[in-house]
Design a protein around this nucleic acid. Structure first.
Lengths: 140, 140
DNA sequence: CTTGACCTTCCCATAAGGGGAAGCCCCACG
DNA sequence: CGTGGGGCTTCCCCTTATGGGAAGGTCAAG
């Protein structure tokens, strides 16, 4: 199976398949005499696994670990679970950051008339808090 | 004021100040005969404004718009509010994505024993759902 | 045998920075 | 006066994960 067919069958672009190979996420597959990469059904499963893991937002680093565990029949589920929970913790941290941003900005926008007049609490906050924020940084 | 002092006073690194200048987010400031950039208190305010806006996760694009509105005394608060609300919407979309990832992964991890045994619903899901996901992509 | 679809590698670009080298500049201390 | 250390300049490379595209080789259908 050529890379294009593997891409269509796995949902991973040919570009990314080559990239995953280059960074060692997947082993280099066999080639035809002309140099075309050849993919087996087993290779397809790996690609689909990776594509699915990407949908969970897992980093290449963690996916690399997961793939090796996935292929190791003697793995301990403990190790898999740890990786998953680390990622969940990362996601929750990121969600908390974004939520704080959204809430504050939403509050400011609520206080903004949003009409033809120039007065706007959003700009005032960005301007005024800047002093406090920079003092905070200097002090820390 | 040299760039280093401006960086300390604004909380924006010298590296980023030069970057903001290079991408046109801030105008090129004056130079000494030796080529050193010179910053005025007004320039500092702009830098602090930008730094604060970055804390809200706003993109360079939107900050560029905000800075120009901020400096335009005849701006309409409507325009400012629109930019802020667009960003809030972006944040909420991103939050929803991350939340879905975290919830699903957390559910899978909950179902995983996390002991020495190899059985793990996390890996099984990544493996099995891959087919459905790729079929979904092919069909769409 | 040509044409077009496919494959290869290589380079470039993204957003928002960080790291660091080479070289010039400035000031203070001895 | 001079020298040393710290500050400034530009330039280049690195990051993540991905897309775009050029130049050139390959394969299969007509």
């Amino acid at each position: 199976m050529n890379i294009g067919e593997a891409a269509r069958a796995s949902g991973v672009s040919a570009k990314m398949i080559r990239y995953y190979e280059s960074v060692g996420l997947i082993p280099a597959v066999g080639r035809t005499e002309a140099g075309y990469r050849q993919y087996s059904p087993t290779d397809l499963n790996t690609l689909r696994f990776i594509g699915r893991a990407r949908e969970f937002g897992l980093s290449m680093q963690r996916i690399k670990l997961l793939v090796s565990l996935w292929q190791d029949r003697n793995r301990a589920s403990r190790d898999v679970k740890r990786i998953a929970l680390e990622h969940v913790a990362d996601l929750r941290r990121r969600i908390a950051e974004l939520t704080a941003m959204a809430d504050t900005l939403r509050d400011l926008a609520d206080a903004c008339q949003g009409d033809h007049r120039p007065e706007c609490p959003i700009l005032e906050d960005l301007e005024e808090s800047a002093d406090a924020a920079s003092r905070g940084r200097v002090a820390s």
